[in-house]
């Protein structure tokens, strides 16, 4: 059938459409770029800030604390690098074939579920690490008893507030991403054809 006689094509091309506002696109571009840079800068700055704190207090920290801090820092560097890489994809565009794009999209949502899962496990892992850390401080008698109890109380207080918060946040994210994955799978399957 010739294109100009195809009723479906004729109907399709005659549809009423909203046209894009090109001046708004230019403005949006600046906003998107700024948002991208702000997120990356925030991630990197938070890391630099932690490094600076450790650096400035290096002489005050005992060997055990310093080692623990360095391990946490190294894990954070890997985390920030990975999250920055994920951001690069989520804000941009793709000129890959759609099949490839969909595979990447599915992988990204699966990665988001893994990150949320990781955050959930991080809650009990950090708590366990803190217990081991304080047990070490107590065993090696690093601090006098009154100072040790003061530090332990402060740490327990912070944990009691922060950790449940992280747990709830990560658990909500996990539920959201699982729902997104299931909905995308449904969209890929469609209802007809």
């Amino acid at each position: 059938m010739a294109d100009n006689q195809d009723p479906l094509k004729q109907l399709w091309l005659q549809q009423e459409v909203v046209l894009p506002d090109l001046s708004q696109v230019s403005k949006n571009w600046h906003k998107v770029r700024l948002k991208q840079w702000c997120y990356v800068a925030l991630d990197v700055l938070s890391l630099c800030f932690c490094f600076l704190i450790v650096w400035l207090n290096a002489d005050k920290l005992d060997g055990l604390s310093m080692t623990l801090m360095l391990v946490v820092m190294l894990v954070s560097v890997v985390f920030v690098a990975y999250i920055t890489w994920l951001r690069r994809f989520s804000f941009g565009w793709s000129n890959a074939s759609t099949d490839e794009h969909i595979q990447r999209l599915l992988k990204q949502i699966e990665s988001n579920i893994k990150i949320a899962n990781l955050s959930l496990h991080l809650v009990w892992f950090v708590t366990l690490l803190t217990v081991i850390f304080y047990a070490g401080l107590y065993y090696f008698e690093v601090f006098p008893e009154d100072r040790f109890i003061r530090k332990l109380t402060v740490t327990l207080g912070i944990h009691a507030v922060v950790m449940p918060g992280i747990w709830v946040w990560a658990s909500r994210r996990k539920k959201r991403f699982i729902k997104e994955l299931s909905e995308l799978t449904k969209l890929l399957a469609g209802i007809k054809v």
């Binding site: 793709s94 759609t98 794009h101 969909i102 999209l105 949502i109 729902k179 997104e180 909905e183 995308l184 449904k186 969209l187």
Partner: peptide
């Protein structure tokens, strides 16, 4: 597709 994936609800 990215849009519908993230606004699927």
């Amino acid at each position: 597709i990215t849009h519908v994936a993230y606004h699927a609800k």
